[in-house]
Amino acid sequence: MGNPTYTPFQENWHNGGFLVSQANGHQSIEQGTLTGGVKVLAGTVLGTILSALTAAAAALGTNTGNGTFGAITPQAAPATMIGAYLVSLTSSSAFTVTAPDGQTATGTVGSAFSGLGIGFTITAGGTPFAAGDSFTLTTTATPGNPSIASAAGTNTGNGTIGSLSVQGYAAKAGVYSVEFDDATHFVVTDPTGAEVGHGTTGVAFKAGGLSFTITAGGTAFAAGDSFTVTVAAGSSKYKPFDPANVDGSQVPSGILFATKDVTSADKPCAVVVRLAEVNSSELVWPTGMSAAAITASLAQLKALTIIPR
């Protein structure tokens, strides 16, 4: 008589199985709409789509000048983070970038890097880099856009870092105003009323999350001429969180209570958004997300009163 054959039991992801505790009643859970075009497991960390990344300009009142407002490019998130970025060489030709909030990305020496809100190129020198060599990129807040500066660690390699750039601040949903001081100069304020920068006709403006150019016409602008720029709000739908997203869902905003398949259509969903304890080992993150980025994201959930255990 042979030995019996057993089929191993595999436990599926249970709806709400990640919860350790939650507030009485329905205080911890909100109803929403889930999107993303995939099957999303219970326990998946979600973000909220907050930006549609579209903008349109319109004259505010009757302008004296007949110049035109060019195409507008709203800056997507992730925007530049203020603080120190660490660039660590992992070999003579590869490096990892760690942002101030712990998110990471990788790059290659000799190729332009763009991500996490910054851009740069590392150029090899006569002496190759070694694992552990590093640079620190420090961003500081300035009117309009952040600025960036670099400093090398005590490196084996004598290569250099250059072509530093910042992406700037992300656009805010709402209405910006553009008001002329005279025929060629204007001031831009954001939806909160904060001044974000000064511009000149015929010169590209980039500050406060917007990029555009105003072109003078046959009739000059006059002081008091103005435009509004309306940045569309996002859908406020939930989708799986990913730090690489650029629509607002790169920031954790809740955890999906029950598995939903939204491959073919968006569906209603229940999301744990506050006043709960969760088992961190049962949360679902994007494939390949680093330990540092997960730690940073757990801290963001904790700030929402979703406490990882």
Results as ranks from 00 to 15, higher is better:
108 T>A: 02
45 V>E: 02
12 N>Q: 11
119 G>I: 01
218 G>I: 04
308 P>W: 05
267 K>I: 07
32 G>M: 06
110 G>I: 03
58 A>S: 13
92 S>W: 01
236 S>C: 00
110 G>A: 06
107 G>Q: 10
62 T>Y: 08
107 G>T: 07
20 V>S: 07
29 I>M: 10
84 A>T: 15
307 I>R: 06
178 V>G: 08
223 A>G: 15
264 S>Q: 13
295 T>P: 00
189 T>W: 01
216 A>P: 01
130 A>K: 13
142 T>G: 04
60 L>Y: 06
32 G>D: 10
78 P>C: 03
24 N>Y: 03
80 T>G: 07
106 T>H: 08
269 C>K: 06
283 L>H: 10
268 P>Q: 06
174 G>P: 08
254 G>E: 11
8 P>D: 04
257 F>V: 12
34 L>Q: 12
87 V>L: 02
20 V>P: 01
220 A>P: 02
287 T>N: 12
301 L>Q: 00
7 T>I: 13
168 G>W: 09
29 I>N: 06
40 V>F: 11
299 A>E: 14
83 G>Y: 10
151 A>Y: 05
66 N>E: 09
138 T>Y: 03
197 G>E: 11
32 G>I: 03
120 F>A: 05
39 K>W: 00
23 A>C: 05
163 S>F: 03
273 V>F: 05
155 N>P: 04
305 T>A: 12
163 S>L: 08
143 P>T: 10
300 Q>S: 12
22 Q>I: 05
5 T>I: 15
230 T>F: 08
243 P>V: 09
287 T>C: 00
80 T>V: 02
104 T>E: 15
160 T>M: 04
144 G>K: 01
233 A>G: 15
296 A>S: 15
43 G>Q: 05
189 T>V: 13
113 F>K: 04
8 P>H: 02
269 C>S: 06
61 G>Q: 09
109 V>P: 02
80 T>E: 06
16 G>K: 08
188 V>F: 07
170 A>V: 06
191 P>L: 06
278 V>Y: 08
302 K>N: 11
117 G>H: 06
13 W>A: 10
112 A>I: 06
78 P>W: 02
